[in-house]
Amino acid sequence: MVADIHAGEPTRRDFLYVATGSLAAVGAAAAIWPLIDQMNPDASVLALASIEVDISNIPVGQETTFKWRGKPVFVRHRTEKEIAEAEAVDVSTLKDPETDDQRVIAGPSGELERQWLVVIGICTHLGCVPLSYKGEYDGYFCPCHGSVYDTSGRIRKGPAPLNLELPPYEFVSDTKIKIG
């Protein structure tokens, strides 16, 4: 005896299969969504993702420290002497060769803002916070193991392998920068 299969009208049973399958798919998505959503950063992390910094009140020759993503960020208003010393360095003598121009960005006018140095204030050796305006080059000095950075945040002496890290930043106006 051979079974006779007809492709006729959908039956009530067909509707129940589709409805049950759809309900199961919606239920599975509803159960999985909280597991996926919990991987997103919380509001406190998103709030620190970028900060705007008013640089108008930092006098020439001074530096201010800001906290960004739990890290200290040094914003330094360099003097003409500091800029000249940083530009005069023979890049081939550096452990991590970068020119001073590679360590600063263009401002709203499109020209490099050499007077502003923005670096993450964490030593690249073991993660200590270096002291500003210290060391042989009047840049940064990490007292833990003796790493010395110049006025451009470039490693000059000591065990640190890399220059101080540059955070992503941009000039929002002549008096504000956005970090992050």
Rank of each mutant, 00 (worst) to 15 (best):
E85P: 02
Q102D: 12
A43K: 01
S152P: 04
P108S: 08
T11V: 09
D90R: 09
G61C: 10
L94P: 05
G21K: 07
E113F: 09
I58C: 01
F15I: 15
G8H: 03
D100C: 05
D90F: 10
Y137E: 14
D150K: 01
A31C: 09
I36Q: 12
V118D: 00
I36H: 07
L164Y: 06
Q102Y: 00
E63Q: 09
S44E: 14
K157V: 10
L112N: 06
K71F: 08
F66V: 15
H125I: 04
T65L: 14
Q102T: 05
P143E: 14
L23I: 08
T65Q: 15
I58F: 01
S109E: 15
R13A: 14
T64E: 09
P143S: 11
Y133A: 09
L35W: 15
P130L: 01
K81V: 15
F74N: 06
C123G: 08
G146E: 00
G153F: 03
V2N: 15
L117H: 03
S56V: 04
L164T: 06
W68Y: 13
A24C: 08
G146A: 00
A30Y: 04
S147M: 06
E9N: 11
L166P: 03
E170T: 05
H6N: 14
F15H: 12
V75N: 01
